[in-house]
């Protein structure tokens, strides 16, 4: 196996991560086989080069021959033409669509989502919010993965996936929460604006494995490009549902356990509308991270 420079390793790992994300709706076994083939492909192509260690330019050359990650899923859909049924028209990017999709997912995974919310709430309280970021990230990851799977089944084990990004999620949680709380203290509106522009930061971090600031930056870009007004209304509705539920006397805490899965699913539905159905809407990665 040829040694690689750090940059080359980084590019290879990033390509494989993007590819895995692109293939997420395939069965795990098929994803692994494609990834293994691609890793073997990279290795064989690199072995034909004379230089060692493999530089960024060499790796870029090999990856260029592999094609963009989205070509893998496009080829799956095109090669399945004979067995395919006509695709339904894309649902509109609207609050009603997100609520409907979230309710449908909630109905299909009621037990897992509520149990996940119960475990999340318990861990957050017991750990004095130290685990809030990773647990919330894990919950988002569980919802995203379930939405992308053909059978839409959520897996409780995914709740702990956020621990793989423990420090970034911890940082993101405290940074955004502190800023949002300060914003709320300044007569609410600044807080709502911050909630709105960081609407997708947890989803982006767990799904695209971005850093703290890159997640915040990309989230802002996605919100601005896809309608700030719509996101602002969505944020207000979600906050009203979350906080409204917890303020109901006597049963508030219990009620919020049932409300959290729904609000998370609404956020994930909006996120997937942008990312999976029109990936060109994602802002390019910046060199600032």
């Amino acid at each position: 196996m040829k040694t690689r420079t750090g940059e080359a390793q980084h590019l290879e790992a990033d390509y494989l991560t993007r590819l895995r994300q692109q293939l997420a709706n395939l069965p795990e076994e098929e994803i692994n086989e494609i990834i293994l083939n691609v890793q073997q492909h990279i290795e064989e192509a690199l072995s034909e080069l004379d230089d060692e260690p493999v530089t960024l330019a060499h790796m870029a050359q090999v990856i260029e021959t592999l094609g963009p990650p989205d070509s893998y899923s496009e080829s799956i859909s095109v090669t399945q033409i004979s067995e395919a049924v006509p695709a339904p028209p894309p649902s509109p990017f609207s609050i009603g669509t997100f609520f409907n999709e979230a309710l449908e997912m909630y109905r299909q995974n009621f037990l897992v989502l509520v149990l996940g919310a119960l475990i999340s709430h318990a861990l957050m309280i017991v750990s004095l919010l130290i685990l809030a970021g990773p647990i919330f990230g894990g919950y988002m990851f569980m919802c995203i993965k379930a939405c992308r799977k053909p059978d839409h089944k959520a897996e409780l084990g995914d709740l702990f996936a956020g621990f793989k990004q423990f420090w970034p999620l911890l940082g993101l949680f405290f940074l955004t929460t502190v800023c949002e709380l300060i914003g709320m203290a300044l007569l609410i509106i600044p807080g709502l604006l911050l909630f709105t522009i960081w609407f997708y930061c947890f989803e982006l971090m767990v799904d695209r494995k971005l850093g703290v600031f890159e997640s915040m930056r990309q989230s802002k870009a996605m919100v601005m490009e896809n309608g700030f007004g719509l996101h602002f209304v969505l944020t207000c509705l979600i906050l009203a549902m979350d906080f409204g539920a917890s303020f109901v006397p006597y049963v508030g805490e219990a009620l919020s356990l049932f409300m959290t899965p729904l609000t998370c699913m609404i956020c994930v539905s909006a996120y997937l509308h942008i990312c999976d159905r029109s990936p060109e809407n994602l802002a390019p990665l910046s060199a600032s991270d």
């Binding site: 098929e30 494609i34 290795e43 592999l66 070509s71 893998y72 080829s75």
Partner: peptide, 30 residues
């Protein structure tokens, strides 16, 4: 069109029962 068209195709043909695959261990790579 791109290499990305070939690997998913192999998977589909395997799923349809037209191909079979075996994994061969390698000493110097995956």
């Amino acid at each position: 069109v791109t290499v990305g068209t070939i690997y998913p195709l192999l998977n589909r043909l395997k799923r349809e029962g037209l191909l079979k695959s075996v994994i061969e261990e390698s000493t110097n790579g995956p």
